[in-house]
Computed example of a mutant assay.
Amino acid sequence: MSSFEYNQERDSEDIDRVTLTDEKGFTLDCYIENAIEGNDGTYLLLMPVDIPVVILSWDGEEEDSDNNEEISNGVLLEDPIEIEEIFADAKAVLAELDLTLKLTAFTLTLTGELPPIEDDGILTLELGNEEPSLESEELQFLKDFYHNKQKYSIYTPLSPLLFLAKYNLLGKVELVSPEDQQMQVILEELLFDDMDE
């Protein structure tokens, strides 16, 4: 059972939620997994309420992958303009599985009950170029579709998608980069504290 299937079964009244908003005005509802007080505010570990998804574009004659990560012979779709262009087709094929795709902030998400995980439907996504064996993510296959003769595949991560955020001086929640050295310490504290509970 994936983390997201468990996530959907939560009693929403027992879990605090916040809403993240991106610069385009899209929103993403998240559960607060953990929180700690820092010198400059409250830091939060967040997980989306709905199920995150990623879309891969499979190499074709017209595919330009200069700015994207290579994944075997597939490319992770990250360009918001391209995602919006194929969104209607992706939403239509997921509807066949009784899943509803949503254009949300920071990641695409969907609602509904995921199909059972099958071993032959799992793809390992290699992250980074130097030592890919150290950073990889497993994805569960959901559906293929075509847009303008280009093949795309929709997957959901098997591991939880987590965001690091903090309450700013106005009391609004904003994302912070986990790459920052100081944030690394806070993120580790949030993660280990969350595992202990």
Score class of each variant (00 low, 15 high):
10 R>V: 09
60 G>Y: 05
77 L>E: 08
77 L>Y: 13
24 K>E: 14
26 F>T: 15
29 D>C: 02
51 I>F: 09
61 E>H: 04
53 V>C: 01
31 Y>M: 03
20 L>N: 09
55 I>L: 02
28 L>W: 07
46 L>G: 01
62 E>Q: 13
68 N>M: 12
19 T>L: 09
67 N>R: 12
13 E>Y: 05
43 Y>C: 03
11 D>R: 11
48 P>G: 00
51 I>L: 10
34 N>Q: 04
29 D>G: 05
69 E>F: 09
26 F>P: 07
76 L>V: 15
38 G>K: 00
55 I>G: 03
75 V>C: 11
10 R>Q: 12
33 E>K: 03
52 P>H: 06
43 Y>T: 07
64 D>G: 13
45 L>Y: 10
76 L>Y: 15
24 K>C: 07
78 E>D: 14
43 Y>D: 06
14 D>W: 14
53 V>W: 00
35 A>Y: 02
49 V>W: 02
38 G>C: 03
73 N>L: 15
63 E>S: 15
63 E>F: 04
25 G>P: 03
24 K>R: 14
21 T>A: 12
22 D>L: 05
51 I>Q: 07
49 V>F: 01
44 L>G: 01
7 N>V: 13
47 M>N: 04
18 V>K: 10
17 R>I: 11
31 Y>K: 02
68 N>E: 13
65 S>I: 08
70 E>M: 11
29 D>Y: 00
7 N>D: 00
56 L>T: 08
39 N>V: 05
38 G>E: 06
45 L>I: 06
67 N>G: 09
36 I>D: 01
36 I>K: 08
31 Y>C: 06
27 T>N: 12
34 N>R: 10
50 D>F: 00
39 N>S: 01
21 T>I: 13
57 S>T: 06
74 G>N: 11
52 P>I: 06
28 L>Q: 05
59 D>T: 07
62 E>K: 13
48 P>W: 02
59 D>K: 10
33 E>V: 00
41 G>Y: 03
76 L>P: 15
48 P>K: 00
58 W>M: 07
28 L>E: 12
33 E>Q: 02
27 T>I: 09
73 N>F: 03
68 N>G: 13
9 E>T: 07
58 W>P: 10
21 T>N: 05
70 E>R: 03
59 D>A: 13
21 T>F: 04
18 V>L: 11
9 E>L: 09
